[in-house]
């Protein structure tokens, strides 16, 4: 098997750890979100929302824990959507010529980048989980050891699919736009609705119909569904709502993300095969 994609991965990670400003912000930002937004909101919500009597077997989940999954998704969303910028820079400053003139299959550029996208996403997720624990986020609370292990694997799978789907999307946009300034605008345009028309910070059921419809086609929602299922369980109560995820829901979410990743990959591959740099 050809493994040149590891070279692309290697270079991207090298730069991730090397460019200190980038490293610092990408590690601090999720913690800040959790600390500032999470704490202030949860102290409000947990007070405002009346305690509904909870039936047997349902786990109560505080708002901070509920929205931690949202912060993870937000972080991955931004990290991966912005990762395409690497390609944009490489293209704009001619670095990509070196790769395009080499025997490296173009798909390897995409695969290598998505590996580093996954790696960055995992690092950030870990930070949120650890830092969140300090603040009062309680993941895997009622899980047995076995359930926890399965859950971690489940989380990995969801992060993997979500991250690469976003990365391919971002690569496609990046390679089709002429300048990186344009790219930043387009990505902001994409990321805000993706994030807010989702169940990241609040339950979908309370959203207006139009936004609810959008959220059903929104990979962020499905990612969060999977994440909550594997961190909070199939049956919990938070924020004035009962949440019940059946295995079917989770499987559907997984397939949705898989489809998302495949489709964006095909677009990205088509795009990168056509890239001309002179």
């Amino acid at each position: 098997m050809r493994t040149e994609f590891l070279t692309i991965f290697w270079r991207d990670m090298l730069k991730f750890f090397r460019i200190k400003a980038m490293l610092f912000t990408s590690l601090i930002q999720p913690a800040l979100w959790l600390a500032l937004y999470g704490i202030s909101m949860s102290s409000n919500f947990d007070r405002i929302i009346p305690e509904i009597p909870i039936s047997q077997g349902v786990t109560p989940v505080n708002y901070l824990t509920f929205m931690a999954a949202g912060v993870i998704s937000l972080t991955i969303l931004f990290t991966c959507l912005y990762s395409g910028i690497t390609l944009q820079f490489d293209k704009e400053f001619g670095l990509m010529k070196e790769m395009l003139a080499s025997p490296l299959p173009r798909s390897h550029i995409l695969i290598g980048l998505s590996l580093s996208g996954i790696a960055k996403s995992l690092i950030q997720t870990l930070i949120i989980i650890v830092f969140g624990y300090v603040l009062g986020v309680r993941f895997f609370n009622t899980f047995s050891l076995m359930e926890t292990v399965v859950s971690v694997l489940g989380i990995l799978l969801f992060i993997l699919l979500f991250a690469i789907g976003l990365l391919f999307l971002s690569s496609t946009i990046a390679l089709r736009l002429k300048t990186h300034e344009g790219l930043q605008g387009v990505i902001t345009l994409f990321s805000l609705p993706l994030f807010f028309a989702s169940n990241a910070l609040y339950p979908i059921t309370s959203l207006p119909l139009a936004i609810r419809i959008i959220s059903y086609g929104n990979p962020v929602s499905y990612f969060i569904q999977g994440l909550r299922y594997f961190t909070l369980g199939s049956n919990f109560y938070s924020f004035g709502n009962y949440y019940q995820y059946s295995s079917f829901d989770v499987l559907f979410a997984l397939l949705f993300l898989l489809g998302f990743a495949i489709i964006t990959y095909l677009f990205a591959l088509r795009t990168i095969k056509k890239v001309k740099i002179v």
Binding site: R2, T3, E4, L6, T7, W10, R11, L14, K15, R18, I19, F93, G94, L95, K97, E98, M99, A101, S102, P103, L104
Partner: peptide
């Protein structure tokens, strides 16, 4: 190929630049 315009990654070292290229060509 040595291109007309510079095509070097400024955030890599001299050795890494060559290492990257060598790996690209397996």
């Amino acid at each position: 190929i040595v291109f007309q315009n510079e095509t070097l990654d400024w955030n890599l070292t001299v050795e890494e630049t060559l290492e990257f290229h060598g790996r690209l060509y397996a």
